[in-house]
Design a protein around this nucleic acid. Structure first.
Lengths: 111, 111
DNA sequence: CGAATACTGAACCATTAAGTTCAGTATTGG
DNA sequence: CCAATACTGAACTTAATGGTTCAGTATTCG
């Protein structure tokens, strides 16, 4: 098996809908673990685990404030992920062009 | 647990480095299962499983040709994934702006 | 025809992931 | 001080992943 890079772990972090929703929630301001867990009806421990995954990928940063833990968006900008997706898009387009060529040659007409 | 949407499955499909490399390989033209498996020193069965994941997310399409299976890039354009990442980027920027505001005001309770 | 090739499916295994509960610890408010 | 609150860690359960091997089936080639 191949070892996992930051990009791998970031894609994996984003693959969970709960975590994407947490990120969206944090887009409107910081929140504690309880506040994040509540709308999902999830245990604090469960949400804590999600937050840890998001912290490991730097998508979230946290700080202990009294007995609560404040979570907010982290420094991670997803540049590598955006780059991969953009490169992929270009690749697909080139493939489509090539496929178009083949179509033109075999069928001899457009559309 | 939340149920898994196509976006979820796509992020998960892209989380594996082997699968991303397969996609990149297919960017330069179609290939059989054997041809895809060879550079990874992986069993055909193993590669077949990866291809199935990519097929389920429409990132790859395949067709049986004689005793081989030809794989090429599928119809999936990753538009939803790109959209999510882009929206996230804007969100982070807004957060950074807000953080600047807070700094200007010296203190600041959250919310 | 018969052997080699290319894939396929089933069964298995080890690891990780997502969630839980339960038993703590630290902080706060009265 | 004491009880309630908020989190934390360990242990456990269940299911999914990523890989394997082995025993087929279908196709091609000499």
């Amino acid at each position: 098996m191949v070892q996992y890079s930051p990009v791998d772990r970031t894609f994996a972090a984003l693959a969970d809908p709960t975590r994407r929703l947490v990120l969206e929630r944090l887009g409107s301001g910081s929140a504690t673990i309880s506040e994040l867990a509540q709308p999902f009806g999830m245990s604090l421990t469960g949400m804590k685990k999600h937050v840890r995954v998001l912290e490991e990928t730097q998508l979230v940063a946290t700080e202990k404030v009294g007995r609560t833990r404040l979570c907010h968006l982290g420094p991670r900008r997803l540049d590598d992920v955006r780059m991969w997706v953009e490169t992929y898009r270009q690749m697909v387009n080139e493939q489509l062009d090539r496929f178009g060529d083949v179509l033109d040659r075999t069928k001899g007409d457009r559309q």
